[in-house]
Amino acid sequence: RTAFSSEQLARLKREFNENRYLTERRRQQLSSELGLNEAQIKIWFQNKRA
C-alpha cells in the first residue's frame, strides 16, 4: 500500500477534479513530477472513481 504525501494527494485530487481519466502521456508526466510510478497513479484514479 502506498503512503502518499499531502503534496502528492493535493496534486492528484486537483488533477482528478480537472479530468477523471488520465491519458497515458499525462500519467507519465504526473509519475515523473510526483516521484510515483505509473501504476500507483493509475490505481489511485481507479479507486477514486469507484
Rank of each mutant, 00 (worst) to 15 (best):
R49E: 08
K13E: 15
K42C: 15
L22R: 01
Q46N: 07
E15K: 02
I43M: 11
T2G: 13
Q28W: 06
E18L: 09
R20P: 15
R27M: 15
Q29I: 11
A50L: 10
K42F: 12
T2M: 13
Q46G: 06
R27L: 15
S31C: 09
F16D: 01
R27C: 15
Q40L: 14
G35A: 06
K42P: 01
E38K: 04
L34P: 00
E33F: 03
R14M: 12
N17C: 11
Q46L: 08
F4D: 03
E7F: 07
A10M: 07
Y21R: 06
N47L: 13
L36S: 02
T2Y: 10
L30C: 02
E18W: 06
S6H: 11
I43N: 12
I41E: 01
F45D: 01
G35W: 02
R20T: 06
T23S: 13
L30R: 00
S32R: 14
L34I: 08
L30W: 00
F16Q: 02
R11W: 04
L9N: 05
R49A: 12
Q8D: 06
K48S: 13
E7W: 09
L34H: 01
R11A: 12
Y21D: 08
W44A: 02
L22T: 03
R26P: 01
Q29Y: 07
A10D: 11
E24Y: 07
I41T: 02
N47P: 02
N19L: 04
F45M: 02
A3H: 13
Q8T: 06
K48D: 03
A39V: 12
R26N: 05
E7Q: 08
R25V: 13
T23N: 08
L36V: 10
R25W: 08
A10I: 08
Q40A: 14
R27P: 02
E33N: 03
N37W: 05
N19T: 05
S5C: 04
E33P: 00
F45V: 01
I41F: 01
N37K: 08
E7H: 07
F16P: 00
Q40V: 15
E38T: 06
A10C: 09
E24C: 10
S31K: 03
I43T: 10
R26A: 07
L12I: 02
E15G: 02
R49C: 10
R26M: 08
N37G: 11
N19S: 07
R11C: 06
G35M: 06
L9R: 05
N19D: 09
K48Y: 14
L12P: 01
E24A: 14
L34A: 02
E33T: 04
S6M: 09
A3C: 15
L30N: 00
K42A: 15
S31H: 02
E24P: 14
Q46Y: 10
Q46S: 09
K13M: 15
Q28M: 10
R11E: 06
F4S: 03
A50P: 04
F45K: 00
K42G: 12
F16C: 03
N47Y: 12
K13V: 15
S31T: 05
E7D: 09
L9T: 06
S6T: 11
E38N: 04
E33C: 04
G35Q: 07
N19C: 14
A10K: 07
N37Q: 11
N19F: 05
R14H: 12
R14C: 13
L9M: 07
A39M: 14
A39C: 15
K13T: 15
Q8M: 05
F16N: 00
F4C: 05
E15P: 00
T23C: 05
K13W: 15
Q40M: 12
L12R: 00
A10T: 08
R26Y: 05
Q8G: 01
R26D: 05
F4Q: 02
N47D: 09
L22V: 05
R27I: 15
I41V: 08
E7Y: 07
Q40T: 12
I43H: 11
N19E: 04
S31L: 03
A39D: 15
F16G: 01
Q29R: 09
N19V: 04
E33S: 04
R14G: 05
F16T: 01
S6Q: 13
E18Q: 09
R26C: 05
N17Q: 12
N17F: 09
F45R: 00
K42H: 14
L30M: 04
R26S: 05
N47G: 06
